[in-house]
Amino acid sequence: MKIAVCVKQVPDTWAEKTLQASDSTLDRDAADGVMNELDEYAVEEALQLAEAQGGEVTVVTMGPERAAETVRKALSMGADNGIHLVDASLHGSDALATSYALAETLKGRGFDLVIFGSESTDARMSVVPAMVAERLGLPQLTFAQKVEVVGDRVTIQRVSEAGYDTVEASLPALVSVVEKVNEPRYPSFKGIMAAKKKPVETLSIADAGLDAAKLGLSAAWSSVEDFAARPPKAAGTVVTDAGDGGAKIADYLSEHKFI
């Protein structure tokens, strides 16, 4: 089975994230870049499927030069090879452009399964997997808390508000995972050493056959008008419980008409 995993490099979630004044895009240099947390689960799921059934795992990212670290991380977890789409004209791409670039990069490579995280921690749109499925005409099996492949059928549990839906399709298919799906492994020392020798294809938009007019900030289908830091919240009242803490909260709640 040939499996692709799409991973995004995002600012470390512990860092305060900011937009840059020059073009209203995320200031990616202000914080360390890490693999989007849910994408670690996507890599783990791909590795487990490949280990159980035999197969090859290719990690795919679109992002600036330093996103290569994120590809390496996936390789050190055990992925076999990588594709890094990097080009100055990709900067500022919106969801339409990102899904276009990823779909074109994935196309025609014979992947049986493409696995995504279900949401990035920076923009948090949760749309790219569905958009790539739409572009490639692949069955969409997203928000999976469980993934099973038997023969050429893939079955997932899609998390719903009420519980979960069971969703099935034939391969090739597209899956996105939530964090309940597995427990990602840490790269071993051996894995880290091995990753240094694994092949990574670095593609410019020309290499990938992409149309520059559909990419980057200038082509975006949406634009930021302005942005501002949220005004800090006025300090509230904090009291120490002296046996009446619960009653004090009840007073506050009735003053504010909650009870």
């Binding site: 949760s126 749309v127 569905a130 739409e134």
Partner: peptide, 17 residues
Amino acid sequence: KESAGRLAVKTNSGVIT
């Protein structure tokens, strides 16, 4: 959100979440 994303591709429209 996923309906919005697919609709955006189908209609070549921008999407804001």
